[in-house]
Amino acid sequence: MKKTTISDVAKMANVSTATVSRILNGNKKVNPAMKKEVLNAIDVLNYKPDNVARSLRSKGSNILGFIIRDISNPNYAIICKGAEKIARKHNYNMILCNSFGVVENEKEHIDLLIQQKVAGVAIYMADDSINTIQPLLDNNIPVVLIDSEIEGVQLPRIRSNSYKGTYEGAKYLLNLGHERIAALAGNENVFAGRERLAGYVDAMMEFEKEPLYYTGGFSKELAYDQTMEILEIKPKVTAILAASNQLSLGSLLALKNREVKIPKDICFLGFDNDDFFSLTDPPISIINRSVEQMGSSAMNILISSIRNKNTDNKPTIYLPIEINHRYSCIPVNQMGGFKK
Rank of each mutant, 00 (worst) to 15 (best):
M12P: 03
I79L: 09
S305L: 00
R307S: 12
K48I: 14
L252M: 10
T238S: 14
D275R: 08
C80T: 03
N310F: 03
G26N: 05
N273W: 00
D138E: 03
E208I: 07
V144K: 07
A87F: 06
F191G: 02
R194M: 03
R69V: 14
C329P: 02
L145C: 08
Q334K: 13
A192Q: 13
N187R: 01
Q226G: 11
I262V: 07
H90K: 12
L136T: 01
I158N: 05
K261W: 03
T316R: 05
K220G: 09
L231K: 06
I301H: 10
V291G: 05
D50E: 08
A10F: 07
Y224D: 09
A10R: 10
A13F: 15
K264G: 07
E149C: 06
L96D: 11
N105Y: 11
Y76T: 13
D50N: 09
L174V: 06
P74G: 05
T238N: 03
K28C: 02
D8Y: 06
G101L: 07
M12D: 10
E206I: 10
K89T: 00
S296W: 11
K171L: 04
A192M: 06
I86Y: 07
L174P: 01
K59Y: 04
H109W: 05
A198Y: 07
L279W: 13
C97H: 04
A223G: 09
D274V: 05
I6K: 13
Y213F: 15
L269G: 00
K81Y: 14
L24E: 11
D111G: 04
A182K: 13
L249N: 08
F271C: 11
P331V: 04
R326C: 00
D275I: 01
I114N: 11
D202L: 02
N288M: 08
Y318Q: 01
A53S: 12
H325N: 00
T311L: 15
D281S: 14
G120H: 06
G336D: 08
K85W: 07
I233T: 02
